[in-house]
Design a protein around this nucleic acid. Structure first.
Length: 270
DNA sequence: CGTTAGTGTAGGTTTTCATA
DNA sequence: TATGAAAACCTACACTAACG
């Protein structure tokens, strides 16, 4: 049984995550909830959770400070960051603290389940913490200066349609072949997969703004060509950009603020 | 008419593998 | 650790069609 601590200042978010864990994940038990870092520290002392799921931005001690403090205290736990819109760069920084994964709000139910399931599997196999897909792959990458820097490079340039592995490799003065190999080895994702994932996640944020046209979203996140954007979006999410937007609107009108989101799935979000 | 989706294709880019 | 070559994959482009 995995012990989980939920840390978020938004009650509705915690309630949604609790509902999901209690209904979908019988191997997990929520031992405590906290609304900020201070409360979380106390809960950790009492319950020694296996997994800490924390928001980044909270009053008082924020998520990053909390993780730093818990690591200082030697807590052997897996950390999952929950990041809201506009926190992406912040979440990237969080990866350097060795978090296992991070989830963007609105949280996708399937992805949430898959992240926790993956953590349980790793713990049960007594493996060292391995990052999951996507951004979390950056954790190992932090150990190599070029890859560490390249992640920041991508974060700065992902909106540029001309961003390429060749350019990035040239930036560091190594061959594209070697750079690509190194990147995949250390992050778990190929260069293009990483960049595409970042673009799609950003696009999903933009699609929540109804006044922005879908093709403009594609342009805004680095897709020069709408057809390519639509194809790529569907490949990663099993729905078109417009379908995704429609779902978000529907879910937000029926369930409130903690709604929407999807990650390589077309199932309902929390 | 504007927006979005779908398809085929050529060319460029990335990944993989063998090798030093 | 690093490179080169070739295969595999991806992207941009052009075009068509559906929909409101």
């Amino acid at each position: 049984m995995m012990k989980v601590l939920l840390v978020d200042d938004e009650r509705v978010v915690k309630r949604s995550m609790r509902a999901l864990i209690e209904t979908e994940m019988t191997d997990f038990r929520i031992v405590a909830e906290a609304k900020d870092g201070q409360e979380a520290l106390q809960a950790v002392e009492l319950y020694r959770p296996d997994i800490v799921i924390t928001d980044i931005r909270m009053p008082g001690m924020d998520g990053l400070a909390l993780i730093r403090e818990l690591k200082t205290r030697g807590l052997q736990a897996e950390f999952v960051i929950v990041s809201g819109y506009g926190d992406f760069g912040y979440a990237q920084t969080a990866l350097r603290y060795g978090v296992t994964d991070y989830l963007l709000k609105p949280i996708d139910a399937d992805y949430f389940v898959s992240v926790l399931t993956g953590i349980k599997k790793r713990i049960s196999q007594s493996d060292p913490v391995q990052p999951t897909v996507g951004e979390a792959g950056a954790a190992d990458g932090q150990e190599h200066p070029i890859i560490r820097d390249s992640l920041a490079y991508i974060a700065r340039h992902y909106t540029d349609p001309t961003l390429s592995l060749k350019d990035a490799a040239g930036h560091y003065g190594i061959s594209p072949n070697y750079f690509g190999t190194l990147f995949k080895k250390l992050t778990g994702l190929s260069f293009t997969q990483y960049v595409t994932h970042m673009r799609i996640e950003k696009a999903k944020r933009h699609l929540q703004k109804p006044f922005v046209k879908v093709y403009e979203v594609g342009l805004a996140v680095g897709f020069d060509d709408y057809a390519h954007f639509a194809k790529t979006f569907r490949k990663w999410n099993d729905c078109s950009p417009s379908e995704y937007r429609q779902r978000i609107i529907t879910q937000q009108s029926s369930t409130g603020s903690f709604a929407g989101g999807s990650e390589r799935t077309n199932t309902d979000a929390i």
